[in-house]
């Protein structure tokens, strides 16, 4: 057990070091969501005047988005990192040590966790500075960080799975538009009841991303909404379970040894 924790610890350290030394991979994951937040909260500011809009600050409404977007970037990062490891033979080097395959996965995810906590904290601070009132207070902010981290781990595991299976950074990057589509076809920019096009509202209702956004959003603009939180956490935890399982199988596929 102690051997395993050493392995996970060292691999987590490596994942973190590698990420921190590539500012080009971490800065966009903070900057793009913030630019997007600024442009949308500015451009759609008056949307709060739509009858029944749940808050009078579009910024407060939209601040849920960066948390999910950052997870998207983390996914791409983890996926390309792992693909690189497959390509360079680093995975084979690890496979020749007594290391367990899952130590690589959990090490990678531990690195994601650290980055994810950092970016969540950044978004919270930006929100506070920009004047967002978090209705659920400090405890709510902690819950937001927990949820954002779960989302980060779930999506990153999908990234690890893609990277392990394909062994190609380009193949991982090629999936970005798909994630992007999931993000946009949700209640990202408008509360679901206020989406007037039926087809769009239907898609947004079936899109799990909507509930992730809405759980975070409820903590900002409503306070403690048990239903939204149950849905958000339920989906996040289910995603974590499925994607970690998938990633672990993908690692095992590459960890071929007798």
């Amino acid at each position: 057990m102690s051997a395993t924790s050493t392995q996970v610890g060292e691999l987590a350290r490596r994942s973190l070091v590698r990420t921190l030394r590539q500012p080009a991979s971490i800065i966009p994951s903070l900057l793009f969501p913030l630019v997007f937040l600024a442009l949308n909260s500015g451009g759609l500011g008056s949307a709060t005047r739509i009858p029944d809009f749940p808050t009078d600050s579009y910024l407060a409404f939209f601040i849920a988005a960066p948390f999910v977007q950052a997870a998207l970037f983390a996914t791409m990062g983890a996926g390309t990192d792992v693909a690189k490891d497959v390509q360079t033979g680093f995975v084979s080097r690890l496979a020749l040590t007594p290391t367990r395959g899952n130590a690589l996965l959990f090490g990678q995810l531990a690195g994601v966790l650290a980055v994810s906590l950092f970016s969540s904290l950044t978004f919270l601070v930006v929100g506070l500075v920009a004047g967002v009132t978090f209705e659920s207070g400090l405890p709510g902010m902690v819950v937001i960080m927990v949820l954002a981290t779960l989302i980060g781990i779930a999506l990153s595991s999908i990234g690890v799975m893609l990277g392990m299976r394909s062994g190609s950074g380009e193949a991982v990057q090629g999936m970005f538009p798909l994630f992007f589509v999931f993000l946009f076809l949700s209640s990202l920019t408008m509360p679901r009841p206020l989406i007037e096009q039926d087809w769009f509202r239907t898609i947004a209702t079936y899109n799990p991303v909507s509930y992730l956004l809405e759980a975070i959003r409820s903590l900002v603009i409503t306070g403690w909404d048990g239903r939204a939180l149950a849905l958000g956490f339920g989906i996040a935890i289910a995603l974590v379970a499925v994607s970690v399982f998938g990633a672990s199988r993908a690692v095992r596929m590459r960890w071929t040894r007798t």
Partner: peptide
């Protein structure tokens, strides 16, 4: 050749 991590 390159089973090394260039970042480490």
């Amino acid at each position: 050749e390159a089973a090394l991590d260039p970042m480490l």
